[in-house]
């Protein structure tokens, strides 16, 4: 069967144009992994490259200066509003995946400093 030459591009263009609205209607469409950071409700694994040092500090319940210090001497001039993805440009060899281990230590230290909490029997 011979079809009009316009069919193939028309089908592809319509399907691609419908993808976003259909995805939105179905609740599948999201173009960002960014979420609201709630104070002291963040786990270390949830720290993402788009987060600023301040957001991570708030979420983990650690002072932002402690985080900057943990990044090393090269990070001394960084502002708390710097996103982790931009830290790479300032701190040689910085990778968020390896920095998470340091964050775990800081969170543990912070919990220990806050004192032992009562455990239910």
């Amino acid at each position: 069967m011979k079809l009009s030459r316009w069919w193939a591009p028309a089908v592809v263009v319509v399907v691609m144009l419908l993808a976003a609205p259909v995805g939105q209607a179905a609740g599948w469409w999201s173009t960002s992994g960014r979420t609201q950071v709630v104070a002291q409700q963040l786990s270390v694994d949830d720290v993402k490259g788009w987060m600023t040092i301040q957001q991570a500090a708030d979420g983990l319940g650690i002072p932002s200066q402690t985080l900057i210090d943990a990044l090393g001497p090269q990070a001394a001039g960084l502002a708390p509003s710097t996103a982790f993805k931009d830290v790479e440009a300032t701190v040689d060899g910085f990778e968020l995946s390896t920095f998470r281990d340091r964050l775990r230590e800081l969170v543990a230290d912070q919990s220990a400093a806050a004192g032992p909490s009562a455990t239910p029997e």
Partner: peptide, 18 residues
Amino acid sequence: HPSNLVLGGALLIATLLA
């Protein structure tokens, strides 16, 4: 992000059709 999966799925359908 999920948008990549949606667009990838749509392209799969479109390519198989046309």
